[in-house]
Amino acid sequence: MELTRLKGWLLAIGFVVLVAVPPAVTAMDETFYITLISRIMIFAIAALSLDLILGFGGMISFGHAAYLGLGSYAVGILAFHEITNGWLQLFVAIGGSAVVALIIGAICLRTSGIYFIMITLAMTQLLFFIGISLETYGGDDGLPTDRSEFAAFIDLGNEWILFYLILGFLVLCMYISWRLINSRFGMVIRGCHENEARMQAIGFPTYRYKLLAFVISGSMCGIAGFLLANLTEFVTPEFMHWFRSGEIMIMVLVGGMGTLFGPVVGAFAFLMFEEIISGFTENWPVIFGPLLVLLVLFAKQGVWGLLPKSKAGDG
């Protein structure tokens, strides 16, 4: 995947703007935007991780919120037991998501098509119900939590530092994804999306590649969950509700499936839209629902997908 010059410039500008957000909005005395943009970047990571398997791998997982929840509960539950070391929490968030993704993926990938969608959906609901039944950790009321503690110079109590940490993770995840999809492994995953039977015929045991992609994607979403718990200082089963899965999927669609930067653009577009329109009416889904139908019917490429493509492929 090569970028066109236009897209390269847009990315560079986007990055500079993000870096400038905390000082700029502080100067304007609108620090609320630091939290909003932080939240958007977290969901951008989640959407990006979904796009790895959805847009590139063709696996329509309707269960990505599960890993968002797992990552956040790793923070909440460890903090509840007074383990606040950020590195350890991050490790558990990633590792826990990976293990659960391995189990769910191993079951779901035995199937395909409609089955796959329904089962990923059902498995997420299972985790949602487990979250609700965990009375010790707040049940359906959720669990307030402290922010993770890293070395002294990374004080997450400072909103600026948290913001830059999230931005750092976003850039890191984008870079990792970019390497990944262009690597041999990435070629196999993209090949499976287009024609799995053909991949098998030329000698790829596709199941194990798809399963690993599923695990990588889940782990990356676990990072988003880790960051989300830190941002909101609260974890709740709501993070795992299948509506979250749907929203993450919408972000991917709005931005452009099977592109690296589309999900990021989509997260911004969706959450900014929600922010603005919910200022007018709390019943905004009445408008958004039909809008989504229209979007699916008439603008499937997404925002990023509408930009001109590089000649060599789907940049």
Binding site: I117, G246, W284, V293
Partner: peptide, 24 residues
Amino acid sequence: PLYLRDHMDQVLATFGLILFFNEG
């Protein structure tokens, strides 16, 4: 209009319908 499209489109469009009806 979505019968011949992939499942992803059907999922999202009908998800849009849920949002509409739940709020409606």
